[in-house]
C-alpha cells in the first residue's frame, strides 16, 4: 500500500518536473514579450506595465520612436520574413514529399536504388551541417542562388528528402502488393494503382513527413544565415534582434512567439491525420 502511494508520488514529481521543464521557457517567452524595455532583466512572470511595444516594433519598426530606434539594424517588418519562410518551407515540403514518395515507392516495390544508396542518403543528416556550408556556398554562388528564397527551398528539399523517403517507405512497405494487383486486375494502370490505392492509404504518412519537413525548414538557421543577405527568412530575422550592438530581448521573444504560431496552427489543423499517421501499423492484416 505504502509502496503504491510512494510510486504515485514519484510519478507525480517526475511529471511535474517534466511539465515545468517544457512549459517554463514558453511562459518566460510570453511574459517577456509583453514587458517594457526596463523590465526585460527582471525575473517576475507577470509584467508590471504590460505593453505591446515589442509587437509594434516587430510589425512596424519605423513607427517606433522610443529607445528601440537606436537599433535600426532591424528595420524590416516581420511580415516579410514570415511570408518568405512560408514560401520556402511550403515549397521545400511539397518538393520533398513528391520526390520522396516516388523514391520510396521504387525502393519499396522494386528495391531501387538499392538499400545501400538508400542508407547513404541518411549521410546528409549524420554529418554536422557545418561540414556542408562551404561547398554549398560555392555551389550557390555559381548558380546565382545566394539571397534567393527558391534556392533555400531547394536546399531544404534536398536535405530533408531522406526523411520523406524513409518515413514513406515504411508506410508503403506496410501496404500489401496484392492491394495494387487487385486494382490492376480490375483494369487500373500501374499509375492509377499508385494514385487511387497507394497514395490515399499513405496520405497520413505524407502528412506526418510533411509536417516534420516543414518544421525543419521553418527553424533551420545555419544555411539561412549564410546563404541570405536581404531576403532573410524568419529564423534569421528572429536571431537579428539580438546583435552585437544590443539585445532586444522583449522583441525577440515576441518574434519567437509569432514564428511558433504557424507550426502550431498547422499541427492543430492536421492532428486528425497525425494520429492515423502514428498508428498506421495497426491495419488489420
Amino acid at each position: 500500500m505504502i509502496r503504491k502511494i510512494l510510486a504515485k508520488v514519484v510519478i507525480c514529481i517526475v511529471l511535474a518536473v517534466a511539465v515545468v521543464w517544457t512549459i517554463t521557457p514558453v511562459m518566460w517567452m510570453i511574459s517577456l514579450s509583453f514587458k517594457t524595455y526596463g523590465e526585460w532583466r527582471t525575473p517576475s512572470l507577470i509584467p508590471h506595465n504590460p505593453t505591446l511595444d515589442n509587437y509594434i516594433m516587430l510589425f512596424s519598426p519605423q513607427s517606433i520612436t522610443t529607445i528601440f530606434i537606436a537599433y535600426t539594424a532591424v528595420l524590416e517588418p516581420i511580415t516579410r520574413p514570415l511570408i518568405r519562410s512560408l514560401i520556402i518551407s511550403a515549397t521545400a515540403t511539397v518538393i520533398a514529399i513528391i520526390i520522396g514518395f516516388f523514391t520510396a515507392y521504387g525502393a519499396s516495390r522494386y528495391n531501387s536504388p538499392g538499400s545501400f544508396t538508400l542508407f547513404f542518403t541518411l549521410l546528409t543528416r549524420m554529418l554536422p551541417p557545418a561540414v556542408f556550408v562551404t561547398p554549398i556556398v560555392i555551389y550557390f554562388t555559381t548558380l546565382a542562388l545566394i539571397d534567393n528564397i527558391i534556392g533555400l527551398a531547394l536546399l531544404y528539399a534536398a536535405t530533408t528528402l531522406t526523411y520523406a523517403v524513409w518515413i514513406l517507405k515504411g508506410f508503403i512497405d506496410a501496404i500489401p502488393i496484392e492491394w495494387e494487383e487487385a486494382a490492376l486486375l480490375e483494369g487500373a494502370s500501374p499509375l492509377q494503382a499508385i494514385f487511387k490505392v497507394v497514395i490515399p492509404i499513405v496520405r497520413p504518412g505524407m502528412v506526418v513527413a510533411g509536417l516534420f519537413i516543414f518544421l525543419m525548414s521553418w527553424t533551420e538557421l545555419l544555411f539561412a544565415l549564410v546563404l541570405t543577405n536581404l531576403n532573410v527568412p524568419l529564423s534569421v530575422q528572429v536571431s537579428k534582434y539580438v546583435t552585437a550592438v544590443g539585445a532586444l530581448w522583449g522583441v525577440q521573444a515576441a518574434a519567437a512567439l509569432v514564428s511558433s504560431i504557424i507550426p502550431l496552427v498547422i499541427g492543430y489543423l492536421i492532428q486528425r491525420h497525425l494520429i492515423t499517421g502514428f498508428t498506421f501499423g495497426l491495419v488489420r492484416g
Binding site: 500489401p176 496484392e178 492491394w179 494487383e181 487487385a182 486494382a183 486486375l185 480490375e186 483494369g187 487500373a188 492509377q192 487511387k196 490505392v197 490515399p200 492509404i201 496520405r203 491495419v283 488489420r284 492484416g285
Partner: peptide, 25 residues
C-alpha cells in the same frame, strides 16, 4: 476476379467505396 490472401479492402475508405472501386475504374 481474385480475392487475395491479404484481401484488398483499403483501410482509408468505407465499405461502399471499397466495393465501388472496380466499378469507378
Amino acid at each position: 476476379s481474385m480475392v487475395f490472401e491479404v484481401p484488398p479492402v483499403y483501410p482509408d475508405r468505407t465499405g461502399y467505396d471499397n466495393i465501388a472501386f472496380p466499378l469507378r475504374l
